[in-house]
Design a protein around this nucleic acid. Sequence first.
DNA 1: GACGATTGCTACGAAGCCGAAGTAATGTCC
DNA 2: GGACATTACTTCGGCTTCGTAGCAATCGTC
Lengths: 195, 195
Amino acid sequence: MARSGGHRGGFEPAPFDVVEASRRVWERHWEPEAASGMAVFTAILRSYQLLADEVERVMRSHDLTFARYEVLTWLMTDPESSLTLSWISKTLRIPPATVTNIIDRLEQDKLIRRVAHPSDARTTLAVITTRGRRVASAATEDLNGTVYEQIGLSEPQRRELTDLLAQLRVSGNEFDVERSDAVVEEVGRRNKGVG
Amino acid sequence: MARSGGHRGGFEPAPFDVVEASRRVWERHWEPEAASGMAVFTAILRSYQLLADEVERVMRSHDLTFARYEVLTWLMTDPESSLTLSWISKTLRIPPATVTNIIDRLEQDKLIRRVAHPSDARTTLAVITTRGRRVASAATEDLNGTVYEQIGLSEPQRRELTDLLAQLRVSGNEFDVERSDAVVEEVGRRNKGVG
DNA sequence: GACGATTGCTACGAAGCCGAAGTAATGTCC
DNA sequence: GGACATTACTTCGGCTTCGTAGCAATCGTC
């Protein structure tokens, strides 16, 4: 569902605010909770499309897709520089078949290597290469400057927004709330090999 | 970028909160604005995936995709029950080739008909059929009850969230701010043929 | 009213995504 | 230790998306 368009170059704004327009229609015909929920989904959809267009444009200029970039980044932050394909599938919530596809491509491009797991012959490890680190770092710097730092919200507003979305994700069981804090702390502690 | 998974049935939560985990990594290595912007994008992405999975599951049970449903809904709310393909492309920000594809499929399924524009021979109108109205209404009721009303946020929080995302979209020029209000008012005024 | 630019749509083809089925290794239970 | 279930990954095939190029109609300009 990643439609084209984009911010600078080749982008056309929609003629009006589709979120508010459809909110009016919904408020007239259905329950208030349905109208506000529809508005939330539509607003998230259009915000996602807006940002994803910009992100994908940056990725294309580095010969990546966002999915491949995401995998590279997690590989960079790992202390061993390696992750199992199943971990990638579970954490990034990418179906196994898609992970295979992504890893195939990253390997073709020599950004990672596939390595057999030392103790479990079923398992494959992806290991990032030097070239992979270079590409991921360059893409990150570009992304930070071109997209992330340019989002039109103040720091408190950004925090407010991510907090609201966190609550939405918790209520939708998007991640394991029980065990999350410990893992996040652990990720925060290590810092090897990034940047 | 519409990955699978889903809420009820075949869904597995991620092992931890990817947004907060990567925020820690970013805060350690890059500018604060890059970290908060990354968190905003990632939170929007994962919220979108969460909701879109549920939405697409509902759509599948009505033999629709969300894109096809969106077009049907806008056709329902139109006073003439018809829209030009170019209007659909601009408003929903779907590339022309994709609109052709969507309209092809809706026509195959007899949910819309293609009709020549009365005065401009270049232009094609999509007109919703009775069957199309039935399908769209059923899908909407299902969607309202199954997804939109179930989002885990209070009414004030929903408003706060859509307001923040509106500001993000305005700053990214997602829609024509100048002319939007007038159109939204006009959409709100008419109510023919919905529900 | 003629000609170049623009607009509206479609055909084609490449790429990404993912459900389902298949293969192989490991784990579990008695 | 044998049988069955589970886990990890890949292969296959179908679907959606969308960039590009093309065609036809219309508009703008002189």
